[in-house]
């Protein structure tokens, strides 16, 4: 098994030029994630959470600063990272088995490959569906398969971009428990983008709040880093978390009495 990897953003910025206009999306991101740590990344829509995740995966490169995994700079696709996107994005022409096998690191073939795929399929509870096609699955099952595909890569860092956002509430809770369990088993470092404060409080060691600065043209940066007390897995009803939840929501601009602040 691959060791969990550390992840570091130092002075990371990303600007896009769309139709000749320069737009700073991220600026001055400094964050060090320890190996095995679970970080939840929260922030308003459009603040650049997915962009930050893509930088870590090597799907995109920063216009300022540097991203490194275990001290080595990320250049091109990072083999020690695996991504789960907001949509399952399974390859529709492949069976589930072959979709999960798609995640295997290069060079893993034959019997070890088969065992590996079977292992992760059973971890996510889909061993009975190995020969099914993606379109024969429910949304939750497909997202579980996407998680298995990422895990098959034995990543040092697991990058999750709102992986449960499209699921119904009950399935989402189940998936959160599954993720906690898998994280414990594999020990992977996790960077989880989420919109859900409860999800963040349930799963993360630290919550990182991303948001725009006073000057909106300057791009988003880290507004707040919140360590979550208590060891994982946490009780969802834990009352000590209630206060944290309230302050988190107010940081996100949500009044806990149900009104949205200006």
């Amino acid at each position: 098994m691959r060791e969990p990897a550390g992840l570091e953003f130092s002075g990371v910025g990303r600007a896009f030029t769309v139709a000749g206009r320069h737009r700073q999306v991220l600026a001055g991101i400094d964050l060090t994630v320890a190996p095995g740590e679970v970080i939840a990344l929260l922030g308003p829509s459009g603040c650049g959470k997915s962009t930050l995740l893509r930088l870590a995966a090597g799907l995109d490169s920063p216009t300022a600063g540097a991203v490194s995994v275990d001290g080595r700079p990320v250049r091109g696709i990072e083999p020690r990272c695996a991504v789960v996107f907001q949509e399952p994005r399974l390859l529709p022409w492949r069976t589930l088995f072959r979709n999960v096998a798609y995640g295997l690191p290069r060079g893993v073939t034959g019997a070890p490959a088969r065992q590996e795929v079977e292992h992760w399929l059973s971890v996510v509870g889909l061993d009975a569906f190995a020969q099914h096609r993606p379109r024969q699955l429910s949304g939750g099952m497909a997202q579980r398969a996407a998680l298995a595909r990422a895990l098959a890569r034995r990543p040092g860092v697991l990058l999750l971009d709102e992986p449960f956002a499209a699921l119904d509430a009950l399935t989402r809770l189940r998936m959160q428990d599954l993720l906690a369990e898998v994280q414990r088993e594999a020990g992977t470092t996790v960077l989880l983008v989420t919109h859900d404060a409860d999800e963040a409080l349930h799963l993360a060691d630290r919550i990182v709040l991303l948001g725009p600065s006073e000057d909106p043209a300057a791009g988003s940066s880290i507004r707040l880093v919140l360590p979550v007390p208590g060891a994982r897995p946490r009780d969802r009803g834990d009352s000590t978390l209630a206060e944290l939840r309230a302050s988190l929501l107010s940081e996100l601009g949500v009044n806990i009495h149900g009104r949205i602040q200006a």
Binding site: A57, L59, I77, P79, A82, V83, F85, R89, L91, Y102, G103, P105, R106, R149, R153
Partner: peptide
């Protein structure tokens, strides 16, 4: 889908 391919090396 192309991005999945790239992300998985």
């Amino acid at each position: 889908l192309t991005e999945v391919g790239r992300a998985y090396g």
